[in-house]
């Protein structure tokens, strides 16, 4: 009697485990690729790459020092003149920027994205866990929302709809670890990838990965790029807070503060896609 009851208990656990696994397998593959093998490989290859890189940098410096001292002095003088001119220009542009910002504030949020029909919605609940940033809004298919519609808040991009029901929709915030957005630096036009990061999620920051050669600085404005499938181009995302070059010197990324304040988000604006 007792042993049969035990067996029954175990069977229940096994049934539940199998059900869970099937659900997991059916749904896991559609969002992201698992790349644990590539990452373990990196642990083997990256020290070698780093060593080679170090050796080349050091020897390059030694030979380079003896060349072209005269040329350097001449170019230094020319650059100094250019710098003075640029500083003056920069001051004027600074004033223009302030003026521009004030004018932008005067315009309504909905008017700025007048190309796309937009609708407001309220946030009704947020993910209770400490790992992800998903929230639910109170409008769904009945209001005409579709999957992959862009969601705005506080004048900037907040995320996109990942699932719609008849009455509510699930929104993945841009600071969620699973989110990535193709973005452009407004000043230089260079594109990079803006990802959410689990370590920055409490501060409400995003990580903007960009080419090491690009001259991104603190205060740069980041907008959505023309490359993105789901986000319309030119939506403001946020401002660069800090630029960090990775330890091996091969990549750089910036911490971006989104205009949307995720801590006390109440209302959002949904842009519906044209033609779809």
């Amino acid at each position: 009697m007792k042993s049969s009851k035990k067996k029954k208990n175990k069977n229940i656990l096994i049934i539940l485990l199998v059900a869970g696994t099937i659900g997991l397998v059916l749904t896991i593959g559609r969002r992201y690729q698992i790349k644990v093998i590539e990452n373990t490989m990196q642990y083997i290859t990256s020290p070698i790459q780093r060593g080679v890189n170090l050796v080349f940098n050091k020897t390059g410096n030694i030979t380079g020092n003896f060349k072209d001292i005269h040329e350097l002095q001449a170019s230094n003088e020319a650059l100094q003149k250019e710098l003075d001119q640029l500083l003056y220009d920069n001051n004027i542009l600074e004033q223009y920027r302030d003026e521009n910002e004030k004018l932008k504030e005067l315009l309504d949020l909905a008017e700025r994205h007048s190309d796309y029909p937009s609708k407001g919605a309220n946030i009704i609940s947020k993910d209770p866990g400490n790992w992800y940033k998903v929230f639910i809004i109170d409008q769904g298919e009945k209001a005409g929302f579709k999957q992959d519609d862009a969601v705005l808040a506080g004048g900037g991009l907040a995320g996109h709809i990942i699932e719609t029901g008849p009455l509510s929709s699930k929104v993945l915030a841009i600071i969620d670890d699973r989110s990535s957005v193709s973005a452009t630096v407004l000043r230089t036009g260079e594109t990079g990838i803006l990802r959410g990061d689990i370590e920055l999620i409490q501060d409400g920051f995003c990580k903007f990965e960009i080419d090491i050669e690009s001259e991104i600085i603190t205060g740069d404005q980041i907008v959505t790029s023309h490359l993105s499938d789901i986000y319309p181009p030119g939506i403001m995302i946020g401002v660069v807070e800090e630029v960090i070059i990775s330890k091996n010197g091969l990549s750089q990324y910036a911490h971006v503060r989104p205009l949307a304040n995720f801590k006390d988000l109440k209302q959002v604006l949904i842009l519906e896609k044209k033609g779809s």
Partner: peptide, 14 residues
């Protein structure tokens, strides 16, 4: 309600 894939939290909970 909040997940992207179904079943993972259910597995842990069970």
């Amino acid at each position: 309600i909040f997940g992207v894939s179904r079943g993972y939290l259910a597995l842990i909970g069970a």
